[in-house]
Every structure is written in structure tokens, then in C-alpha cells.
Amino acid sequence: MASHAGAITLVVNGSTVTLDPSRDFHPSDTLSSVLRDRLGYTGLKVACDQGACGACTVLLDGRAVLSCMMLALEADGHEVLTIEGLPADDPVIQAFYEQCEPGYGTAMQCGFCTPGFVMAAKGLLNENPDPTMDEVKEALAGNICRCGCYPAIARAVLKAAATMKARAAGAAGAATSGAGSAKEATHA
């Protein structure tokens, strides 16, 4: 691929993007500003711009990072996943949306922190698909929800983990039963 000196290549939500420093970004630009202002991924939010709130969380090669604390340059050659890259039936998105059982409130109110929490939860579940409540809290301790929905957020993450587990079991079950019927068909 022909590119200018200093150009960087990111894979954002599966699409390869090459950015030219003479035109598309400045070497001092943060990943958050390039994603939001240059590439239009406005799902991530910038609230403190100093790594203290987690609203800008995205996944870099599957791990949660604070995009306001890293330069776009540092993401060169890496895969970036923003909330726009999650499918509509993503179990974490669904769990955050659906959380409303008696006694805990909803998992968001103003919603400004929510994409950051969702991506931090994705990062946790990528590494640890079956976390305990303490592990959930530890993983989300860098995210601020000023509306204070923490108890419901923690429950939503545990539910998302359970849904992922059930879906994986369902898929495995479907694969197994499929194989079984193929076997029967062979016998017949």
C-alpha cells in the first residue's frame, strides 16, 4: 500500500483506515479525537480528557483502553473496536438496555458514560467470560457514572456474561445435535 511518510493504519470496526499526518491528523492528536472528529465514531465520549472517567473507552486488540490517553499514532497497526462496531444484539448492550428489575434501578440515566461502561465490560468479558461481582467492580472502577447507576451496571454485566454463556452453550448444543442428526442420516 502506498502511503505518505508517517501515515498510520488502523482497523476500526473491521474497516482498514489509513490516515495521513499531512492531512488527516496531527501527531499530537489523541485516539479519541481522531475517532470522533476525523472518523465520526461519536459513540465514545470525552468527559474529562485526562483518563479519570472512562467515557472514552474503546477496545484495542480486544482490550479496553482509554482513547483520550493514547495518541492515534500508538494505535497504528492495531484493531480498534468502538461501540458502533458491536452488533445490535450484543449481550452487553442488551443487558444495559434491559436492566430494570426491582431494587436496583436502571443501568443508565443520562447515558453519557454508558458507551464507556459497555466497552469496559466488553474488555472484561473478553478476558474473563465468567467474572465474579468483585471482578466486575474492579474492571469498572475507572469509569465514572455521575448519575450513580453502579449497582444496576454491575448486575447488567453479570447478566451479559450469563447470556454469552447461554448463547455459547446453545451454539455448542446446536452444533452437537446437528452433528448427531448428520450421523443418524449417515446410518440411514
Partner: peptide, 11 residues
């Protein structure tokens, strides 16, 4: 669920 819940949860 919140009436704006899906819009907010999905960014």
C-alpha cells in the same frame, strides 16, 4: 427499561 435505553446503551 428506559424508553431511551437502547439508544443510550448502543451509543
Amino acid at each position: 427499561p428506559r424508553v431511551d435505553g437502547l439508544a443510550k446503551a448502543s451509543g
